[in-house]
């Protein structure tokens, strides 16, 4: 589905990705684990075509992103839904306008049909009937769920969750994890999760990849990565996320 090979990316002198390779299987949940500043978001921005790599290839659904111009990249992005860490709802639009935004932009649905789709997506995330509320009236967890409804409005083939459980309390963390799993089951879409929450990742993922020093250093099923001897993975598994002081 998505094949990333030998990806390199630097910003000025700082090397962020240094030969990262990973495969995201169709219809599965794959989590990219990594400490803060390890380059997880940079990797995902390449996959969605927001950043161009210095070298390496990214093939999405059979299309090599490197060969596409900006307009063709926009078409590729329609295959994606993206849930931002801070939800990134348009604060000047109500819930209905937020969720219907991609539908009015990219489909020719009538308003009544759009209303039906919005209501259906809100039901999916357990928030039926809040179309008229403004984002400022919603709690953090509700915003996240509305953002998820927006992300799946166009029935994307792939959905990306950027740190979906960061900053949430344990109850809401479980709710969001359930939501990721049920959304994947209900829609059967390829799911990419960026996270440093090992507990949630082990619970919901079909595959896990550990990004460390610009490379995917571990990849496999939750059972397999739990047996990993990689020092960073051991730190994660011990529940201690601690960025190394130096490369040595």
């Amino acid at each position: 589905m998505i094949d990333v090979q030998d990806l390199h990316k630097s910003f000025k002198q700082q090397v962020v990705l240094d030969g990262a390779s990973i495969f995201f299987a169709e219809g599965k949940i794959t989590t990219i684990l990594g400490g803060s500043g390890s380059g997880k978001s940079v990797l995902v921005k390449h996959i969605i075509g927001l950043l161009r790599p210095d070298s390496g290839t990214i093939v999405v659904d059979g299309q090599d992103l490197e060969t596409l111009d900006d307009r063709e990249l926009l078409q590729v992005r329609k295959k994606f839904g993206y849930l931002f860490q801070d939800s990134a709802l348009f604060d000047f639009m109500n819930v209905f306008d937020n969720i219907s935004f991609p539908l009015f932009e990219h489909t020719r649905l009538k308003r009544s049909e759009v209303q039906h789709v919005v209501a259906e997506k809100l039901r999916l995330v357990g928030l039926a009937g809040i179309e008229k509320k403004m984002p400022s009236e919603l709690s953090g967890g509700m915003k996240k769920r509305v953002a998820l409804a927006r992300a799946v409005a166009l029935d994307p083939k792939i959905i990306i969750y950027d740190e979906p459980t960061t900053g949430l309390d344990p109850v809401m963390t479980d709710t969001v994890n359930d939501l990721i799993a049920t959304t994947q089951e209900a829609l059967g879409i390829t799911t990419i999760v960026i996270s440093h929450d090992i507990r949630s990742s082990l619970r919901i993922s079909d595959f896990l990849g550990l990004l460390n020093e610009g490379k995917i250093v571990e990849f496999g099923t939750p059972e397999k990565v739990q047996e990993s001897e990689h020092p960073m993975m051991r730190l994660f598994l011990a529940g201690i996320e601690r960025a190394p002081v130096s490369k040595s």
């Binding site: 969605i48 927001l50 926009l74 078409q75 992005r77 329609k78 994606f80 993206y82 931002f84 860490q85 801070d86 990134a88 709802l89 348009f90 604060d91 935004f101 991609p102 932009e105 990219h106």
Partner: peptide, 14 residues
Amino acid sequence: VTHQIDALMVMAVD
């Protein structure tokens, strides 16, 4: 700064 412009981009809106 609240990533709403990024949200536009990932929704394939220029």
